[in-house]
Design a protein around this nucleic acid. Structure first.
Lengths: 165, 165
DNA sequence: GAGAGGTGTTTGCAGAAGCAAGCATATCAT
DNA sequence: ATGATATGCTTGCTTCTGCAAACACCTCTC
């Protein structure tokens, strides 16, 4: 589908415009994401001293089967770059919330794990996390809408970065 | 609606879990946003030397009625902090794409405007912008889904940051 | 079993982002 | 008029972020 079709774009004064629904969907994604992540980050930082990134990392770790995850897996699950995960892990390690373990079968691999203290903190911080998410996001949607969002986003993410276009 | 109701959260081994649909909606929002903004930023930077932020600012400016906007309005429309807008404007000004004008009726206010060169660049960069958005986002959705996203996000954003909870 | 190439992680760096303090101007109360 | 307060923008500082280069280790081939 080529861009520039009359059904998708409107031209006026040399500039193009999205039709309102498309503009709303795009702008809304931006605005909703910003609203949510800032709110979450603020709440988690204030109450538990964890940035949203740090919470994501620690939480993924605590929920992982075996409570250990290689760095690259952690990065994939927490939507952060590998380098960021490495540095966040530094901080969590310094605070005694996480630890690095070397993998017995492949010493290139680093497994991150969560300490007892870290696990306890996740348990507490979760309440804040779920509270904010429900209050500002999912709680304002019907179950059908939540399901629809999941399926839409799932499709986008599954399609991957480059659809070979 | 209190968090922790059995319909919303599942508890296991001392940790709580979202049911899959809710997890998918939240994770999907994060993943889709990251995917899209990184793709857009990369494409705009490579082809036009504009970061996504710079493009947003310049584009909002070019599309504004009167082609001028106060800095605070610009910040609101482009989902950026005021300080970021100020600095992005510095760069755009240095590159001759935008200009600051003082407001005749209130000299605290600064109006940002776009130059002819800036307007021309927006005209070109738009094609990249719309192409990426359609290719990776809206083009993969039905019109109904686009409309639904718009209405869902619109509701979230309209509700504002703090619902007095 | 030694080197070529691949994979997993960390580190150097440079840019992006926002908060809070600072500065300039306007507005309001007296 | 004049000080007190509010508003709009910019700047100083710190943190976050990711890319790409570096590094360490594994694996495969000959």
């Amino acid at each position: 589908m080529a861009v520039g079709e009359s059904t998708v774009l409107r031209t006026e004064g040399g500039l193009k415009y999205f039709p309102p629904e498309r503009e709303a969907a795009w702008f809304g994604l931006l605005a909703a994401h910003a609203e949510l992540t800032r709110g979450l980050d603020a709440a988690l930082s204030a109450r538990h001293g964890l940035s949203l990134s740090a919470y994501e990392v620690l939480s993924r770790l605590a929920h992982a089967p075996g409570v250990r995850l290689r760095m690259s897996e952690l990065a994939a699950r927490s939507q952060l770059s590998l380098s960021r995960v490495s540095r966040v892990t530094d901080v969590l390690e310094d605070r005694g919330l996480a630890a690095r373990k070397s993998c017995p079968t492949d010493s290139r691999v680093v497994h991150a794990t969560v300490t007892d203290e870290g696990r306890a903190l996740v348990g507490v911080a979760q309440d804040t996390f779920f509270e904010v998410i429900e209050e500002r996001f999912l709680g304002r949607l019907s179950c059908e809408e939540v399901g629809l969002l999941g399926s839409i986003f799932g499709r986008l993410v599954a399609a991957g970065p480059q659809p070979r276009a």
